[in-house]
Computed example of a mutant assay.
Amino acid sequence: MQKYSPNAYNSQTIAPQPPAKAKRLLSKLLSAGQAALPFHRTHQQIPQSILEDMTPEHWREMEQEDDGDFQYNWNEQFIQIYVPQLWGRLYLFLAALAKVIVLYISVIVLIGQIILIPASNYDIPAFISSSILYLEWIFLPCALIWAQFELSTNFRTNLWFLRPRLLFEFNRQTGMVTLYRPGRLVRFSHPFVEFDCVLTSAPTQLGFMRYGLMLVHRYQGYRRGIPAALLLSKRSEPRDEMLRLWNFIQCYMDVSQPLPDMLALEAGRLNDPTTAKVDKKTGRTPRYWRDMDDETYYRSITQSINHDDSY
């Protein structure tokens, strides 16, 4: 069983924090009308989109594929968030474009050339020559790009630039929050209690409000913060979901409380000291969520969400 670091976040023993000095990013956010959210004593409240992001059947399939050695980037030690690399995004765009050219554009071009044969006085050599040029310079390169993408996807042999990069990490054991540069280089890393949480909002082109959640270091003048809203699978979520997310983050980092009771973190409950004690006392089934069928799972989380009226 893993042990907590002396610096792990404990809501029951928070040392007095010094006043803030440099707050360039925080001041900018707050001056734009954004709201700062306070630390508070949390409870087992989880955003709906996190609960619906994975089902028990999907989890069991991943366990079977990895022969029981399945490792998830949400566990009792840390929550890691990955984002696509820039070159990977460009490659995915090119692969999608190549597929369209091979399956659709090429057929249109071929039909167009056949239709134009009579207009060229049945110049068959010219038709063959232009077709060969199209095959060599357009069709074959696109076919190779699309084929490589399909093979790498089916056999899980993605090129390095297709693999997502680690953006940030919440570490429950050490109490640290870390933002990474490309190549897993640390941009900054500080204790969780030194961050201020800001609820951001901005209108969309259609006039709807789009909310976000940003963790900003209280004492350093960093121009970047932790985009905590990326923990949610959907880009746009209502305000209440963001408030639940802040509650969830605090609950996860707080070693005085058990891990949030959810599917993605269930496998690590026995390895977390506080959670293991609580589960032993309550007699919780170790695979309560993972052995559940999907229909029962959705019914259970729907009931828990409907009963949640904290916000």
Rank of each mutant, 00 (worst) to 15 (best):
M1T: 09
P6K: 02
N10W: 09
Q12K: 14
Q17A: 12
K21G: 07
A22H: 12
L26W: 03
L29E: 02
L30Q: 06
L37Q: 12
R41G: 01
H43Y: 13
H43M: 12
Q44W: 06
Q45V: 15
I46D: 01
Q48W: 08
W59D: 13
W59E: 07
E63K: 13
E63R: 11
Q64L: 09
E65V: 14
N75S: 07
E76G: 01
I79W: 08
I81P: 11
Q85G: 10
L86C: 00
W87K: 13
W87Q: 15
G88V: 03
F93L: 14
L94E: 08
A95D: 05
A98W: 05
L103P: 00
I108C: 12
I108K: 06
V109G: 08
G112Y: 10
P118N: 09
I128F: 13
S129M: 15
S130L: 14
I132R: 06
Y134P: 02
L135Y: 07
E136H: 10
W137T: 15
P141T: 07
C142M: 05
L144C: 14
W146N: 04
Q148P: 01
S152Q: 15
T153H: 11
T153F: 09
N154T: 12
T157K: 13
L162H: 08
L167Y: 10
E169C: 14
F170N: 03
F170P: 04
N171R: 01
N171C: 05
V177P: 04
T178Q: 03
Y180H: 02
Y180N: 07
R181M: 12
R181E: 15
P182E: 11
E194P: 06
T200D: 02
T204L: 06
F208C: 06
F208I: 04
L213Q: 03
M214C: 07
M214G: 04
V216K: 01
H217V: 00
H217N: 12
Q220A: 07
R224G: 03
I226H: 01
I226D: 06
A229N: 12
L230I: 03
L231S: 05
S233R: 14
R235S: 15
E237G: 03
P238V: 03
D240G: 09
L243Q: 15
W246D: 02
I249C: 11
I249G: 00
Q250P: 02
V255E: 09
Q257W: 08
L259N: 04
D261S: 03
M262R: 05
L263D: 00
E266K: 01
G268Y: 04
N271M: 09
T274A: 01
A276W: 10
Y288C: 08
Y298A: 11
R299T: 13
I305S: 10
H307G: 05
D308M: 08
S310R: 15
Y311Q: 09
